[in-house]
Design a binder for these strands. Structure first.
Length: 413
RNA sequence: GGAUCUUUGGCUGAGUUGGUCGAAAGCACCGGUCUUGAAAACCGGCGAGGGUAACACCUCCCUGGGUUCGAAUCCCAGAGGGUCCA
């Protein structure tokens, strides 16, 4: 949620930073005007309300003393009508304001590079060198089918396209990866939590998926939603709470299934398990004091990167440009794993610092001395399990189509 | 699914003949006195959001409606929790 006070106080800065995200100055100016109008409407309403309160008190005194009340009653009745009108005006303004405010993305950090789309993301570094193949490496769906690890047709039969079924080692590898990742993260200081896969609308508003991205969410008949990422339930664990300074930072890791309609991805990654409606993910979420979030961000990136390194998977780190940055993020570093079958790097993890954007929406604060301040929230995948399997298949394949298992995983199988 | 009770500030918990209740008390917490230090004791502070230079003032006692000049307190609906029945 945009900081309306800051917008009011320092329009220049806010506008400049949001322009980089493609938010028009006109929209922000409109928002500023709306905010001022709302303040006026509120003041008008409150003045009337104060009058009503004091007259009502007087009313009590009159009755107790047995005084004549008809004149006072007439005044108070008239005022009541004014209050109703003023309240309606205020309510309308509030609604208009919120509609705009909730749809404005987070301000990117100043050091986030400008850019249109993923083409303009900036590589930070490569980790591990991709191996040389003496044969033409296959893509993962071919390997998965050949080894009987994944059945694509039966997934479609059970549900619809973009669903698949793991068999044998395909299923076991998935479970091994989840355990390996959770253990790895725990050793890095992230406490394991187990959370619901269904959440209410409030939680999704808190982390920014609603109201803007409803199209990509599965909704149940009684108004709950399947989570698109564990970020939603884990971050919202502390929704509407005031944390003690000594509790921070809170660093958590959680494994969940994730569900996405992939509404805007028609035709993309239709083969294989790169883009599924249901996938497994181990997530990292941190809640920190504002001054600590950069440090924790680096820890999270390192955690995900080291995990890939432990699995002997070549990857690279890229900073997302403004055009590719998500709605809630102030800064994001993607980890892209090398896929020899596709001969390219593909996203496998995304670590974001949302600063106080989600905290403001979800009302997560901490006591800073006497004052209550918004925390910073961060999230990052560590890792997308399906994509990790893809990476293992493609990087550890042999000429005959068999697949080796990374050393680090063997104790989990 | 039916019946009944219940929902108050970080926690426990008063407050049901509507007005002086944003809300007693205890615990926890913070500051101070005392102490070599700590504990105990004593003194003080202590919900949140908006608003203000600071006050004033407004809002919030599960949520949403309603009655009333006025509601934590009354009515209706919903959600959560307990007990009994199925």
């Amino acid at each position: 949620m945009i900081d309306l006070k800051l917008l009011q106080k320092d329009f220049e800065t806010v506008s400049k930073r949001l322009t980089r995200k493609g938010v028009s100055t006109e929209l922000l100016e409109g928002l500023k005007v709306k905010n001022e109008e709302l303040k006026k409407a509120k003041a008008a309403y409150e003045t009337l309300q104060a009058l009503q309160n004091s007259m009502s008190k007087e009313f009590g005194v009159y009755k107790r003393e047995g005084k004549e009340i008809s004149e006072l009653k007439a005044k108070v009745d008239a005022n009541k009508i004014e209050i109703a009108k003023a309240l309606e005006v205020q309510r309308k303004k509030q609604e208009e304001l919120e509609k705009i405010a909730m749809s404005i993305p987070n301000m990117p950090d100043d050091n986030v590079p400008d850019g249109e789309d993923e083409e303009d993301n900036v590589e930070i570094k490569k980790v591990l060198t991709p191996r040389e193949f003496s044969f033409e490496p296959k893509e993962h769906w071919e390997l998965a089918t050949q080894n009987g690890w994944i059945d694509f047709e039966r997934g479609v039969k059970l549900a619809t396209s973009r669903f698949s079924v793991g068999f044998g080692m395909g299923a076991r590898l998935e479970r091994a990866l989840i355990n390996f990742m959770l253990d790895f993260n725990r050793k890095r200081g992230f406490a394991e939590v187990s959370v619901p896969a269904l959440v209410n609308a409030q939680a999704l508003e808190g982390t920014g998926q609603l109201p803007k991205f409803e199209d990509d969410l599965y909704k149940t008949q009684d108004g709950l939603y399947l989570i698109p990422t564990a970020e939603v339930p884990v971050t919202n664990l502390y929704q509407d709470e005031i944390l003690k300074e000594s509790e921070l930072p809170i660093k958590m890791t959680a494994y969940t299934s994730c569900f996405r309609k992939e509404a805007g991805a028609a035709g993309r990654d239709t083969r294989g398990i790169i883009r599924q409606h249901q996938f497994h993910k181990v997530e990292l979420v941190s809640i920190t004091k504002p001054q600590d979030s950069d440090k924790v961000f680096d820890e999270m990136v390192a955690c995900a990167s080291d995990l890939l390194t432990a699995l002997e998977l070549p990857h690279r780190l890229v900073t997302l440009c403004t055009g590719d940055l998500g709605f809630s993020a102030a800064k994001t570093i993607d980890l892209e794993v090398w896929l020899p079958g596709q001969n390219t790097y593909r996203e496998i993890s995304s670590v974001s610092n949302t600063r106080d954007f989600q905290a403001r929406r979800a009302k997560i604060r901490y006591k800073n001395g006497k004052k209550n301040e918004f925390v910073n929230t961060l999230n990052g995948s560590s890792l997308a399990v399906g994509r990790t399997m893809v990476a293992i298949m493609e990087n550890f394949q042999n000429e005959d189509g068999t697949i080796d298992i990374p050393e680090a995983l063997k104790q989990y199988l």
